[in-house]
Design a protein around this nucleic acid. Structure first.
Length: 148
DNA sequence: GCCAACGTTGGC
DNA sequence: GCCAACGTTGGC
């Protein structure tokens, strides 16, 4: 089992929304993040849900992967804001996974994550990181849980 | 709302 | 294949 961190803007989709129902994690339009979703995220992996671009940025909870990478259906839907005419169903460009809710965490603020020396290798805390899907090592996972 | 950092696009 | 221009991300 592997560990991940997924970013989301809570105004659009928050941990409380995940708590209500499973969700497709779709609309990821970055190749590095896509590669993780397509090639490495597996059923049973656990995921920190990070709230970005909001009042209180930080890790807000934990999800669990219910379904591994499959072609992002929104990329084929002309009515979706995530539509990408260059994504060919025969060779899909973008991928999604399905997530289930595990539990909420007391919000662990970005500033606290940055201040934790055990997390200095996590892309999230590095300058200008725009990666929205990133691996978390076992040691980092445990270090973050210890901040609860 | 500002702006720095980054990824992508497209002309050459 | 380079690189400038552009659009987007995301913290503050």
């Amino acid at each position: 089992m592997a560990y991940w961190l997924f970013k989301t803007e809570p105004d659009a989709f928050a941990i409380d929304d995940l708590a209500r129902a499973n969700t497709l994690w779709e609309g990821v339009r970055n190749y590095q993040a896509r590669n993780f979703l397509r090639d490495q995220v597996q059923v049973g992996d656990r995921v920190f849900i990070y709230h970005s671009s909001c009042k209180q940025v930080g890790i807000a909870g934990i999800g669990k992967v219910e379904r591994a990478g499959f072609p992002d259906p929104f990329a084929f839907d002309p009515d979706s804001p995530y539509f990408d005419p260059k994504s060919d169903p025969a060779a899909p460009r973008w991928y999604a996974v399905e997530l289930a809710f595990e539990r909420k965490l007391p919000l662990l603020p970005l500033a606290a994550l940055k201040a934790n020396p055990a997390l200095s290798g996590l892309p999230l805390v590095q300058k200008g990181c725009r990666l929205s899907v990133m691996p978390v090592s076992e040691a980092e996972w445990q270090a973050i849980l210890a901040m609860e």
